[in-house]
């Protein structure tokens, strides 16, 4: 039974990583850049939800929507102000800028909301479910997180397969120049990608803080890095890859914590990543990328 409990916790944590990883992977697929500030958008999402619930007293579900809206605007602004001027610049310049944006968000949060950690109240107002005479406990956060992950996965798959904008995103990620020759506005496609990724980051932030209820300006950085790892693990640029990578990473992390060592769990997670990349450099579901000249 404890095994099953750990598995459920692992899938649940992994679902959060998966939702975050989607943001990394979609942005990478389209803009060919690693948005290191993505993890900090998660933190902003958490704070917006925290403040609207604790100070303004809005209902939890409304706070989720507000948080998504704020993060969407934030993500689009970050892209417009920080990354768009660097389109076509060397990727190192873009990477350094992304790290700069990440620190900027953390420090801005510290200024606005203080550096002490806050106790986040879960947005899921249900009790845990006990099975097998209390040996198997399923938290409502797990149920909501895993369900959210599934819904998001299905929605994004349909979006990229069926809608005009979704197909345009695939076209841009394959060949920006050819996409422009079709009449696709590459800039707005990139904006939409950042908007979707950031709205997902808000959801992830709230789910994460609901399950692990502390919130501080650096809350987003470690999950951000892990989700990035998950995206690479699954094959960066691949939506199913981000899902698979996220969930596997969550399971590995929880099992390492439970059966090996809490201190070493992060080391084990990254060791697994390195191993996978040694054997399969493109990630589990990644495609070999042909470099375009």
């Amino acid at each position: 039974m404890t095994f099953l409990n750990h598995l459920i916790n692992g899938i649940s944590l992994g679902s959060v990583y998966a939702i975050i990883a989607l943001g990394y992977t979609m942005v990478y697929g389209i803009a060919k850049m690693l948005n290191f500030a993505h993890g900090d958008v998660i933190m902003v999402g958490g704070f917006v939800s925290f403040l609207t619930v604790s100070s303004a007293g809005v209902p939890a579900i409304v706070s989720v929507l507000i948080s998504m809206a704020v993060c969407t605007v934030l993500g689009v602004l970050i892209e417009r102000l920080a990354y768009k001027p660097l389109r076509g610049a060397p990727s190192l310049a873009v990477l350094i800028t992304a790290i700069g944006v990440s620190y900027f968000l953390q420090n801005a949060a510290q200024l606005l909301w203080g550096s002490d950690s806050k106790v986040f109240t879960s947005v899921v107002p249900f009790n845990s479910i006990s099975l097998a005479g209390g040996k198997l406990v399923i938290t409502p956060e797990s149920i909501v997180t895993v369900s959210a992950c599934i819904v998001i996965m299905v929605a994004l798959t349909l979006f990229t397969a069926k809608t005009k904008m979704g197909k345009a995103m695939r076209a841009v990620s394959e060949d920006k120049g050819a996409a422009q020759l079709m009449g696709i506005n590459v800039n707005s496609t990139i904006s939409v990608t950042f908007a979707i990724g950031s709205a997902l980051a808000a959801i992830a932030g709230i789910l994460l803080c609901s399950a692990y209820p502390t919130l501080s300006p650096t809350t987003g950085s470690m999950p951000g890095i892990k989700a990035f790892t998950a995206a690479v693990f699954g094959g960066i640029g691949s939506i199913p890859g981000a899902m698979l990578g996220g969930i596997l990473l969550g399971i590995i992390e929880i099992f390492s914590k439970a059966y090996i060592s809490t201190e070493l769990s992060d080391a084990i997670v990254f060791a697994v990543l390195i191993l996978v990349l040694l054997v399969k450099p493109e990630g589990l579901l990644g495609r070999h990328v042909r470099e375009k000249v």
Binding site: R170, E174, D175, G177, A178
Partner: peptide, 8 residues
């Protein structure tokens, strides 16, 4: 070079 979207 045609540049069709090969994955579509």
């Amino acid at each position: 070079g045609r540049r069709v979207f090969s994955q579509m």
